[in-house]
């Protein structure tokens, strides 16, 4: 393995946040990461930099100063309109070689988890996936990266001493976004796209953003999830109404997905998505281990089930014993309209 000497390592400074840009907009996870980066940079006595790659993003990039960025590197080019992993990886590698950050973090989203592993391999760096905790080791100055493994049953702390930058993807909604400080300024560094960056330009033919916000499990404060107990598509319409009233998303157990009541994108669990939300309301889900590993880190878990003895009713913070078809409509009625 190519390891760096102490002197080589000391050339790497500052904490970088790779912004999540979606349809030309900088996503909320970027603000969360800037909050985490601020703490790390303060512990290292260094700066927070944000890297924004996209098309027409220059103006928005400046807004990151308010969330704690000291400098913002902007690569604004029409060829970055859609997410092309290979191109963004080339750009990042080039920027890393030029500016030598000590730490680089990015959201553990489908895009981040496609992009950063590519960058880590090319730059001979280690990468820790899906972190939920970041800290600086006061003895060595190394980044300590904590992440769940085995479906959340073990927390592992990982260090990457001999390589720079130290890289991690960070789970959305775990770090708190700082309040915006209006008037805070950052230096904007504009970098062009090089010809070599686009040597592997795959064609994106179509982008489909679901206007049904109900699918976006990663960004929701509340998830209303249904299982076999929901009985069918109509049952999920009921859950959608509740989710809409709470401003949340709809999740599902594998049994409900396999029955064809709701698309796979909603599935929570071992073979679906892992979610960590403020409130998880499980309706008619028994809570087999494969489901639990996907939602057990949520702050408040509510279960509604006729059967008081299911695994989920045992582990929930609030277990409501009863028929979901009677309780959920009552709840929808009881919630004041926004």
């Amino acid at each position: 393995m190519i390891t760096l000497t102490d002197i080589e390592r000391s050339a790497y400074k500052n904490v970088w946040v790779v912004a999540e840009v979606l349809a030309g907009n900088i996503e909320a996870v970027t603000h969360e990461l800037l909050g985490a980066a601020r703490e790390l940079a303060d512990a290292r006595g260094s700066e927070v930099w944000a890297v924004v790659m996209g098309s027409g993003v220059t103006e928005q990039a400046g807004s990151l100063a308010a969330f704690g960025a000291d400098r913002v590197v902007v690569v604004d080019d029409p060829q970055l309109t859609d997410f092309v992993d290979e191109v963004e990886a080339e750009v990042l590698v080039r920027l890393i070689e030029k500016h030598k950050p000590e730490i680089l973090i990015c959201g553990a989203t489908t895009r981040g988890r496609a992009l950063i592993p590519r960058v880590a391999v090319i730059t001979n760096c280690g990468l820790t996936a899906d972190c939920t905790g970041l800290a600086i080791d006061s003895d060595t100055g190394d980044l300590l990266q904590t992440r769940p493994a085995f479906g959340g049953n073990i927390m592992a702390t990982i260090r990457c001493s001999n390589h720079r930058p130290q890289m991690a993807t960070v789970r959305p909604r775990v770090m708190a976004a700082p309040d915006a400080q209006e008037g805070r300024q950052a230096e904007i560094i504009t970098e062009p796209l090089n010809q070599n960056d686009t040597r592997q330009l795959k064609k994106i033919l179509e982008v489909f953003h679901s206007d049904e916000t109900a699918v976006n499990l990663a960004d929701a404060d509340v998830i209303v999830a249904g299982g076999r107990g929901v009985k069918g598509r109509e049952g999920f319409d009921l859950l959608r109404q509740l989710a809409a009233r709470l401003g949340g998303a709809v999740g599902a157990s594998r049994a409900a997905v396999d029955a064809g009541w709701i698309p796979y994108a909603h599935q929570v669990g071992q073979t679906g998505q892992t979610v960590q939300t403020k409130v998880y309301i499980a309706c008619g889900i028994s809570g087999q281990i494969q489901h639990l590993v996907g939602m057990q880190s949520s702050d408040l878990i509510i279960a509604i089930d006729k059967d008081p003895d299911t695994p989920l009713m045992q582990m929930a913070d609030v277990a409501v014993v009863g028929d979901l078809f009677e309780i959920v409509p009552e709840l929808i009625r009881a919630i004041p309209k926004l």
Partner: peptide
């Protein structure tokens, strides 16, 4: 490049479950 330096169980969830029963 990466080294696992420590592993530990995740922080425990609150052990008590609040049970709600009654009319809908």
């Amino acid at each position: 490049p990466t080294r696992v330096v420590k592993t530990q169980p995740p922080p425990p969830r609150s052990s008590s479950t609040k049970r709600i029963e009654g009319s809908p």
